[in-house]
């Protein structure tokens, strides 16, 4: 029998780092479960979970639930209530995602270089599915100056690369008169 050691999605990519007023750091993965209620079973699910996020919602009745696409939400943390499988599809996604935190007063300016959606009206916290450059993106807005950026694990390098360039560019612009 062998023993396996774990590695992180951003291993070898030199996070965290800062350019100018923004900082990028890796999120240490927790248990993430994709919950997708079967058609017509949302009410039953709400009873068990204490709620289920509508599009764009993030809330924490017990576990943190982040809307993550059509009829699905990611639950962060351990301790899902029993019986969920009768009304929803459940999939462990703890290893599917690479998540990073982009923070600082220029975080929005950095995202404006990469994300083609209107971030002005998003409340905090809230979530959106969109793209970062060509990468699939689950964006969680924590505050006006803090965003969680989640993409698929295999694309961690591209996520870092795109953000690194945009962060450098925004920082360099600050010096222009």
């Amino acid at each position: 029998m062998i023993e396996l050691s774990a590695s992180q999605p951003f291993a070898g990519l030199h996070l965290p780092f800062s350019h100018g007023a923004t900082r990028l750091s890796a999120i240490v993965p927790a248990r993430m479960t994709m919950i997708a209620p079967f058609p017509g079973k949302t009410e039953a699910l709400v009873k068990l979970l204490g709620g289920f996020p509508a599009p764009g919602e993030v809330f924490e009745p017990h576990l943190r639930l982040v809307w993550a696409g059509r009829e699905q939400a990611l639950a962060f943390g351990e301790g899902l209530p029993d019986g969920l499988e009768t009304c929803a599809s459940l999939n462990d996604q703890s290893d599917s995602w690479a998540g990073a935190i982009l923070e600082g007063e220029d975080a929005k300016a950095v995202l404006a270089r990469l994300v083609a959606m209107d971030l002005r009206a998003l409340p905090a916290p809230s979530s959106a599915r969109t793209m970062l450059g060509h990468l699939p993106l689950l964006l969680v807005k924590e505050s006006e100056a803090e965003f969680q950026l989640w993409t698929y694990r295999s694309m961690a390098g591209s996520l870092k690369n795109d953000l690194d360039q945009a962060m450098r560019s925004v920082a360099a612009r600050r010096a222009v008169t």
Binding site: P55, G56, G69, R70, A116, M117, A128, R129, T130
Partner: peptide, 11 residues
């Protein structure tokens, strides 16, 4: 209907 107005590149 889920996400509101989005750029063509997402479709």
């Amino acid at each position: 209907p889920c996400c509101g107005w989005r750029d063509l590149r997402e479709f």
